[in-house]
Computed example of a mutant assay.
Amino acid sequence: MQPDFPFPAFVLPGPLNLILTRLMRGMARRHPAILRRLGDKAGARILIDVTDAPFPLLMEPAALRLTAVRRDVACDAVIRGRLAAFLDMLHGGADGDALFFSGALEISGDTAAVLAIRNALDDAELDLTDELAAEGGPLAPILRRGAALLARRSGLMLTRHTGGMR
């Protein structure tokens, strides 16, 4: 059975990988402190296994690459959980430690690399919608409206949480 995933089935890994890598490179350009904060852990290969998605993502910070891969890919560490948990953590809606201790997110492998990435992303206070719009050029308004529609229909947190953590 295919997981319920909020993105269209026609998005293939090849084009998706180009988009994901462009997004990661743009974020690194706009937020260079993220890579500096990773220090010697920037070379780690982190598998982000979104359990309700058809494929996980492999984050390679030093190579500025984010790609859709098979679940059995070689990596240094794995972060596993539902998309909503990852987005809540990224956007400041939930504390990463609380998500780990509650079991909403699981980590294995090089936990120091996972914590370095989590801390670097927390410090950057990223907003996924802003990051997508920044890469969208003239399509930015359409991307923002699409993200707002997707957030309303799916219940996913696609923008930075402005209040305290829930």
Rank of each mutant, 00 (worst) to 15 (best):
M1L: 12
P3S: 06
F7Q: 04
F7Y: 15
F10H: 04
L12N: 09
P13V: 06
P13R: 05
G14P: 09
P15K: 06
I19Y: 03
L20Q: 07
L23S: 10
L23G: 03
R25N: 00
M27H: 04
R29K: 14
H31L: 00
P32H: 15
P32N: 05
P32E: 07
L35W: 13
L38C: 10
D40K: 08
I48E: 04
D49I: 02
T51E: 03
P54T: 03
P56M: 09
L58A: 06
L58F: 02
M59N: 01
E60S: 15
P61H: 02
P61T: 01
R65A: 12
V69A: 10
R70H: 02
A77T: 05
R80M: 13
R82H: 15
A84I: 11
A84M: 01
A85P: 10
F86P: 13
D88M: 09
L90F: 15
A94F: 10
D95L: 03
G96P: 11
D97R: 09
A98N: 06
F101W: 03
G103E: 08
G103L: 06
A104D: 02
L105K: 01
E106N: 00
I107R: 08
D110V: 12
A116E: 02
N119M: 01
L121Y: 00
D122R: 15
A124E: 11
E125Q: 15
E125N: 10
L126T: 10
L126Q: 14
T129K: 04
T129H: 13
E131S: 06
L132R: 02
L132S: 07
L132E: 08
A133S: 15
E135G: 08
E135V: 11
G136W: 06
R145S: 14
G146A: 11
A147E: 05
R152D: 09
R153H: 12
M157L: 15
L158H: 01
G163T: 14
G164A: 12
M165A: 15
